[in-house]
């Protein structure tokens, strides 16, 4: 399974590089091949405007990975800060911060991200903002739990009694001990952010035309499903293969770093 996931991830990297080398253009329109199935010239067929689906899938994967990486980094930094403060100080600070996370968790799944994206308006920046505004909560929860258990470790108490300040305690003595947990969480969250991004784009709230995005492509593909089933099947299979590979890589990291994950 591990080799399988590496193989898929490697294949995607190769494909994107190859896309650049052969200068596949995702926006070239060829009206003669509208909704045509796979051929030797268009390996994945053509979409409703006669654009090469392969080229668009490749440009979509870049966008998707870019959004997922930015969102994961932003949410991780913010969530970890909130979680460490709540776990370290406890008491009033903790209960206020946890009540805030409770409120965010009251909105199921991507509902809050949909709501934010809806009022902020479509576009790449707003998409990233909407996903970041809602994504930090799981990191905050995770980090809080970790901080509480690490807070009373002897080396932390020793550093504290030697006069180390709070930032030093948090960043030198507590944070390094939870990197493996955070790395595993980040791997899974890459996959879930990609799904969330695709969902928002599917609803027309994310990346806008003519930029390629998997969600938006699926949205078009569903509309033309009766005449061109290859479109929806190919784009969906691409998305699934990447999500699957990232999740498998996450499983591998989890086993290797020996991290127990809560059932979500």
């Amino acid at each position: 399974m591990r080799l399988f996931s590496y193989a898929i991830l490697g294949l995607w990297v190769l494909a994107v590089v190859a896309g650049y080398l052969f200068q596949l253009d995702p926006n070239t329109i060829n009206l003669n091949v509208i909704l045509q199935g796979p051929t030797t010239q268009y390996w994945f067929g053509a979409d409703d405007l006669g654009r090469d689906i392969l080229a668009r899938v490749l440009s979509g994967v870049e966008m998707s990975v870019l959004v997922a990486c930015i969102v994961t980094i932003v949410t991780m930094i913010f969530g970890v800060l909130v979680g460490m403060l709540a776990g370290f100080y406890g008491g009033r600070v903790d209960s206020v911060l946890m009540q805030v996370t409770d409120i965010f968790l009251a909105f199921p799944g991507i509902l809050l991200a949909i709501a934010f994206a809806a009022v902020l308006g479509p576009g790449l920046g707003n998409l990233i903002l909407a996903l970041s505004l809602t994504g930090w909560v799981s990191y905050a929860r995770l980090t809080r739990g970790q901080t509480i258990s690490l807070r009373s470790r002897q080396h932390v108490l020793a550093a504290e009694s030697l006069g180390a300040g709070v930032p030093r305690l948090l960043f030198r003595h507590i944070l390094p001990l939870m990197t493996s947990v955070l790395v595993v969480e980040a791997a899974y969250s890459l996959a879930s952010v990609m799904i969330a991004e695709a969902s928002l784009s599917f609803l027309g709230l994310g990346i806008q035309a003519p930029d390629a995005s998997w969600g938006a492509m699926l949205r078009d593909a569903v509309r033309f499903m009766l005449v061109a089933p290859h479109y929806v099947l190919i784009v969906g299979a691409c998305l699934m293969s990447l999500i699957l590979a990232i999740n498998l890589a996450g499983d591998y990291l989890r086993d290797k770093l020996d991290v127990k994950r809560e059932m979500e």
Partner: peptide, 13 residues
């Protein structure tokens, strides 16, 4: 891990 926006169209198809 299969998102609804793919499963749905596939079942429909």
């Amino acid at each position: 891990a299969v998102p609804a926006f793919w499963l749905g169209p596939v079942l429909m198809l």
